[in-house]
């Protein structure tokens, strides 16, 4: 008899990589401090939206979390463990400027499935499913690089979601899109969240933050200024900087 048959430790049920912890994380370039002693813990559930003016360090924070860059001080840990390739493969990231391979739409999705060791027999169905969800099924054989901006970003999100990540990072995914295309992207993000993926996203679009956020992380000049449930944040920001930002005033 196995001595422990609890569902948590079955091989099929991979232990979560969350919570994600940032302990006094700092990033310095020369004499400039880009990120200053950031403390933050993110767990399953709420859609976390990071907002703040340009240069606040939102994108860098996502990259630090995802392990694309290393902090110069402090530590990033995933469920208590240091970030690494295997833990990163349980996460996905969508960039502001989508990076699509110079291949067909379908081949872009197929590629990430192959990298993630999805069996050949399973790939076709998962590619079709991903493209269906993104509304790109009719463009499957088109070159990915000739899609419109909105279609490109939807493909990037569909590709990220195809590997069923536990966490999805999105760096200003709609900043280059018109309102209709941005709305389609927001719908996809909602669906992915509803299916159980943790969403961590940056934006400087306040309307979008109001629509999507469950909680707000407000950053300014490389520091975390406040972290508040979304409703409370927009109704009554706790700090002067956040009040100014919500009111649409220039932050310098």
């Amino acid at each position: 008899m196995p001595f422990d048959a609890s569902p948590r430790t079955r091989l099929t049920d991979r232990p979560s990589v969350l919570p994600l912890r940032l302990d006094a994380v700092a990033l310095e370039a020369g004499r400039h401090t880009l990120i200053d002693s950031l403390n933050l813990e993110l767990d399953r559930g709420p859609r976390t939206i990071i907002i703040g003016p340009n240069g606040a360090g939102k994108s860098l924070t996502l990259r630090l979390m995802h392990g694309l860059i290393k902090p110069t001080r402090g530590a990033v840990t995933w469920a208590g463990a240091a970030p690494g390739r295997r833990r990163r493969m349980r996460q996905a990231m969508v960039f502001q400027q989508p990076v699509l391979l110079r291949r067909s739409v379908a081949a872009n999705v197929r590629y990430v499935l192959r990298v993630h060791g999805v069996a050949r027999a399973e790939r076709a169905a998962r590619v079709a499913d991903a493209l269906e969800r993104a509304g790109l099924a009719h463009l499957a054989r088109r070159s990915a690089r000739v899609l419109s901006g909105g279609e490109q970003q939807r493909l990037a999100i569909a590709r990220a979601h195809a590997i069923q990540p536990e966490v999805l990072f999105l760096d200003e995914p709609t900043s280059n899109l018109d309102p209709a295309a941005a709305l389609a992207v927001e719908r996809m993000i909602d669906e992915i969240h509803a299916a159980g993926t943790k969403i961590v996203m940056t934006t400087h679009d306040m309307g979008q933050a109001r629509r999507l956020a469950d909680e707000i992380v407000f950053m300014h000049r490389g520091r975390l200024i406040e972290r508040t449930p979304a409703a409370a944040f927009f109704a009554d920001p706790q700090t002067q900087a956040a009040r100014d930002f919500v009111a649409g005033q220039l932050l310098v």
Binding site: R63, H66, R86, M89, V99, V115, H116
Partner: peptide, 10 residues
């Protein structure tokens, strides 16, 4: 162009 995306994918 690809570096961060490819590293992100593992």
């Amino acid at each position: 162009e690809y570096d961060e995306q490819l590293r992100s994918l593992g």
